[in-house]
């Protein structure tokens, strides 16, 4: 089993995620959370897209309810990951809870990409732990740095947030049908923005995407 190779890859992924973590830390604090609150999200929510979504809705002036629901639905893919990781890891008791917490895009992708005997679980745990450590250190760094650096807008951080979301979305748009769906959902959100409370346009866009997909024939 290529243990060394897996460890090197896991650290590499951790370092890559760290760049993103710094932006999250900075964004959290510039959206009105304090350092402790921003860190709580990285430690206990520990799923980047949901964290960004939560902070994004709060920054846009959305209600708590809208923020929570959006974070929840953005994180729903982790549920699918968990089901397949449970099948692979076969853990019990406390380890199940720990595995659950570490079930994210990166750990799942690494586990699934190692088909050699026994390598999948090793890749899962190594990547999960690596990302957890790097993600949290990076969040702290970003949160403290923005406290010192000041005006997030002058630094172009508001654009960086949009760029971050685009980078999350882009790999999911593999077909033209999905790209079209993404643009349509964006338009629906902007349309809803005119007459619904803050935060809800995002939910409406999500529901729109789901309903349209279920309504389409293969």
């Amino acid at each position: 089993m290529p243990r060394n190779r897996i460890i090197t890859d896991a650290i590499g992924i951790g370092v890559g995620v760290a760049s993103y973590g710094v932006s999250f830390g900075a964004l959290g604090v510039s959206s009105g959370l304090d350092v402790m609150q921003t860190m709580t999200l990285s430690l206990f929510m520990f799923t980047g897209a949901s964290q960004f979504a939560l902070v994004g809705v709060i920054a846009a002036g959305g209600s708590s309810f809208a923020a929570i629901i959006t974070a929840f639905f953005v994180g729903i893919r982790n549920f699918a990951y968990a089901v397949s990781m449970n099948d692979l890891l076969r853990v019990t008791g406390l380890k199940k809870i720990l595995a659950g917490h570490l079930t994210i895009d990166e750990s799942t992708a690494m586990a699934l990409s190692h088909k050699e005997k026994g390598a999948g679980p090793f890749a899962f745990w190594t990547t999960g732990i690596s990302v957890f450590v790097f993600w949290n250190l990076a969040t702290l760094l970003g949160a403290l740095a923005i406290n010192i650096a000041g005006d997030p807008q002058a630094l172009g951080l508001d654009a960086a947030v949009v760029a971050g979301f685009l980078a999350l979305l882009w790999p999911q748009l593999k077909t033209w049908r999905l790209r079209f769906l993404a643009v349509a959902s964006a338009l629906v959100a902007l349309f809803a923005f005119g007459f619904t409370p803050a935060g809800t346009p995002i939910l409406i866009a999500g529901i729109f995407a789901a309903v349209v997909t279920l309504g389409m024939r293969e």
Partner: peptide, 8 residues
């Protein structure tokens, strides 16, 4: 997630 992220 595609719909939510696009809206966001």
């Amino acid at each position: 997630p595609i719909g939510l992220l696009s809206g966001l």
